[in-house]
Amino acid sequence: MAKITKQEVKHIAKLARLNLGDKEVEKFEKELSLVLDYIKVLDEVDVSTIEPTSHPFKIKNTTRKDEPVSDKSNDQAEKIIGLAPDTKNNYLKVKPILK
């Protein structure tokens, strides 16, 4: 059985920028082990010569002209900033990154 440890759960949570309480760590330890165990069925398949698929159809990168598009309303920027939880003078406020 695939066994994922508490340490691993904490490591993954840190990578995912998720704070987990002790109870959640314990819960995920059990649940993720079960899910990963289920996923192990894929080991039955020999894929050594198979190419991966990342998209259902083979489409190439599509681009459009890089031109400014004017919208009927000119207050979109204001609305976008207005959605931010913490702002000052129309800037987003962010906590210090460096100590």
Binding site: A16, L18, N19, L83, P85, D86, K95, I97
Partner: peptide, 25 residues
């Protein structure tokens, strides 16, 4: 991320990492 939109713990956090961790939690 608790910064651009959506639920945020930014004001209660001490640093950027805490903003991420607690807003998402």
């Amino acid at each position: 991320d608790g910064i651009r939109y959506g639920y945020s713990e930014n004001q209660k956090s001490k640093n950027l990492l805490e903003t991420y961790l607690y807003s998402r939690e």
